[in-house]
Design a binder for these strands. Structure first.
Lengths: 144, 144
DNA sequence: TTGAAATTGATAAACCGTCTCAAAAATAAT
DNA sequence: ATTATTTTTGAGACGGTTTATCAATTTCAA
């Protein structure tokens, strides 16, 4: 059947080919599930995929999500005690406002900031591939 | 001047007073060591202070750094697998341009970006305490 | 089809940070 | 000062998350 995520699947396959790694049913399943999310933890994905056809071990999920990071499809973000894996290719890249009081996360996008980032990069001779912007502070509720 | 960090020591003592907490030699030592750094992990501080007069347990260091956070002197950030405690009173925040090819890191500062960040935060009811901005890409050398 | 090489899942182990608790220290009361 | 009360400390136990180990399985090129 025709897969929904042909482009990302291609990116993965190219990365696998370049590193003598193999394309497996597990990696395909995990990528499919991953691309449906904006961000997810390994544990969450483990429970989501627990009942799928080939049973997926937690170790495999961790290994695969880390592989996605190396392939540029995902980005790891440590928050609280867990690691969030962000879907980089998710359209409309978003940044995070994180409340240091209660842990609430608000996603936002700001074109002006992105434009300035490009400016800073080119001034330094860089071409940006991706970025990470996290603002830490107190939400209105926690400030009081 | 008696102590080098009189101002911060005052902030700490005020916080202690307000919460029925006690001023101890350990808290004094840890604050002194902390204020010399821009940021530090509990583990790093543990090794730094291992040979000091009163021996400091790792648990005490964690407890005290968290206390500093509550007093507004420090700010915890999850970086990699560990928690970085940032020295809030340390000014001159800088962001990073990171080359994914050779690992080169360029530091930069951009007031316009910072201003826009404040804007985004207040629009969402947040007060920013700190932030983290990393731009990943290829430097001029690696692009060719 | 065959065989070398990589991957998988289960679980052990490592790691980080917090919790527990008896002993010690700091403050308040006498 | 001395005593009483409360908090803090350090050592190690503990819990949750992530990585390492390894035999069995799967992939893929020849």
């Amino acid at each position: 059947m025709m897969t929904k995520h042909a482009k990302e699947m291609g990116v993965l396959k190219e990365h696998l080919g370049k590193h003598q790694l193999k394309f497996t049913r597990q990696r395909e399943l995990i990528l499919d599930a991953f691309l449906k999310q904006e961000h997810i933890t390994a544990e969450e994905m483990y429970h989501q995929l627990a009942r799928k056809d080939p049973h997926l071990g937690l170790a495999t999920i961790y290994r695969t999500l880390n592989l996605f990071c190396e392939a540029g499809l995902a980005q790891a973000r440590h928050f609280g005690t867990q690691t969030q894996y962000d879907n980089v290719s998710h359209k409309g890249h978003h940044d995070h406002l994180i409340c240091t009081g209660c842990g609430k996360i608000v996603e936002f996008e700001n074109c002006d900031i992105e434009r300035l980032q490009e400016e800073v990069a080119s001034r330094n001779g860089f071409t940006i591939q991706t970025h990470r912007l996290e603002l830490y502070g107190l939400c209105s509720r926690c400030r009081h």
